[in-house]
Design a protein around this nucleic acid. Structure first.
Lengths: 348, 348
DNA sequence: TTGTAAGCGTTATCAC
DNA sequence: GTGATAACGCTTACAA
């Protein structure tokens, strides 16, 4: 390993001067600078992050915690985190939250020992436990989750998004719209989205119909079965995750029902999964990659600025219509297959 | 931050003794041990990873580099890496390889400054450039890629796997089998798989038919179009990635062709994507999660043992038959829809 | 069984 | 402008 002393020796200066040059501080002549730069290149010197972090009490890692590492939603956010972090000279350290939050706290303690510059929690709220595990110097931020509470977060307005999705289905002419929600116990965000669905249905004087999965693919077919058992005449299913929506599309097809002609399916999140089925999913888009980038930007800004100044921040969602939704065919409302699709603005 | 000295003071011993207790070394009485443990708990002390790494010249991070962070294949391998690393007290640091290997080398240099215990390269070979960037003390290993070269790697036998997949299609009765390969320039592994396909086809005196995509979803429909343009009577398509295979299934459906009755589709990798389409993909399974775990195990073992002792290592692949493959329907060979499926052992 | 002290590679404070 | 020097928190000879 080549150290700062090696460079100093070759350049004929002191370690302190090399440090100044490396860190872009003032206090040396142009000539000195050139000699140091040359030496650095010659020895291909790279400052030791460990020693630096130890001395400055300021590490160069951003910790990221996700419930499941291989999840599409988390992956896309992490991708944004990675690019923004790298761009600013930080490295990202990855951890899995797992089932209980004790697990998360353990990771947080580890991040602290690295003197992490910040921590990003994907799809998980900041609990008191976690805050404690992290100590006081390190800013945390939740991404893709938010609730009434004032902890730092970055998310879309899930209530409004679910409302808009439901509204769109209603506007298309659907009246019997089933909701396929995630596990209410584990995913906080589902409760909020459910509220949005409920509000839209109530406003339109429509009967809500809800069944629960766990946000993952395999949980959807049985839940869809339950939905259909309760109302065989459903014309639309709103699934609160793309994975479940994809499963619904496939399961419907397996049952010989045409999507969207017989039943429309609306997803949520706009992960890669949404384009991996046929017909491709109409879905509510969250700017996942962007959220990851923004999270590190805000985290890093928080370090300099007032430490606790991070509140919740809402990003815009967007309804993307692909092939899995249309007007219901067997009604008096205009059918998409026969007419051009000008969304009819009728409410009941 | 509570340091080892704080603990020492509370426990009424020296920092050295605390260190011994923390690291499980011998040399203290049971009574001392108890007092130290109590103090540690009381202050919720956690050793500083930075200081420790600096002193011991042995960091606690495993670096992982993937071409694309949000890719399903990489995600599943990373998931295995994470669990194995965590279990052994290591943290994983994530990086994206990006287009050129200069990018990768830069990450490698960063890993070195963390005194990484090892580095895992997903879907990328170890180049001389990279070896150099990493210095000599840190073991590297490629996962899910291998070639004739003797660099350390962990992969299935891609040639044999592609051969087996092709064989299976032939055994089912297919004669006109198109191959949908990835970009030959960027993905080394594709060349090897292509060889396996070619060998099986040649042995069976069948005409090979190959078109190239780039392994991703969007590249598949046009490539499929080209395949079909060259032979409209194709009864099977072997795609060298699940994403492409999924796209083929969906595109075929869009064209009104029934999978597998009219055309069988075989995928590769057995990522989550393979179960996200209907019919679910038959595919060649790589033990992705397991590969990730094994990679860290071998890396960590390599540290202690002889440093360069890591050669290539081959893992078993497995053919998984789901719904996207069957015997061709419009031939004299037994149709799967009418008879029970005993794979007919006929060769041409 | 336990303590003292010397560094690991860096940055920051202070002199010159 | 530049160089000693003292930490940062830890481990590890070496002493006791």
């Amino acid at each position: 390993m080549t150290t700062i002393r090696d460079v100093a020796k070759v350049a004929g200066v002191s370690p302190a001067t090399v440090s100044r040059v490396v860190n872009g501080l003032a206090g040396y002549s142009a000539e000195t600078r050139r000699r140091v730069d040359d030496a650095i290149r010659e020895l291909s010197y790279e400052p030791d992050t460990l020693a630096r972090g130890l001395k400055t009490k300021q590490g160069a890692v951003i910790g990221v915690l996700a419930p499941v590492v291989s999840d599409a939603l988390a992956s896309e956010i992490m991708s944004g985190v990675e690019s923004a972090a790298r761009q600013r000279g930080y490295s990202v350290m990855l951890g899995r939250t797992g089932p209980n939050s004790a697990y998360a706290a353990s990771y947080l303690r580890t991040f602290r020992t690295y003197r992490a510059a910040g921590v990003i929690l994907i799809s998980a709220a900041v609990t008191a436990d976690m805050r404690r595990a992290l100590g006081s110097g390190i800013p945390v931020m939740s991404v893709a989750i938010r609730d009434g509470a004032q902890f730092p977060s970055l998310a879309i307005d899930d209530e409004a998004a679910a409302y808009d999705g439901t509204r769109r289905l209603i506007t298309l002419g659907h009246r019997r719209i089933g909701l396929l929600a995630g596990d209410p116990a584990s995913t906080l965000v589902n409760t909020v989205r459910k509220r949005g669905y409920l509000r839209a249905m109530t406003e339109a004087r429509l009967d809500p119909l809800i069944e629960h999965g766990n946000s993952l693919y395999d949980s959807a077919p049985p839940a869809l079965g339950r939905l259909l058992a309760r109302d065989a005449g459903l014309t639309a299913v709103f699934a609160l995750s793309d994975e479940m929506a994809a499963a619904v599309v496939n399961e419907l097809q397996r049952k010989g029902r045409i999507v969207p002609d017989e039943i429309s399916v609306l997803g949520f999140d706009n992960t890669r999964t949404s384009t991996h089925v046929y017909p491709a999913l109409s879905t509510i888009a969250q700017p996942l990659e962007r959220m990851g980038q923004l999270a590190v930007e805000r985290l890093l800004a928080a370090e300099d600025g007032p430490a606790g100044a991070l509140g919740p921040r809402i990003l815009a969602h967007r309804l993307i219509e692909r092939g899995s939704t249309s007007a219901p065919a067997d009604r008096t409302t205009p059918s998409r297959t026969t007419s051009t699709t000008h969304p009819t603005k009728e409410n009941s």
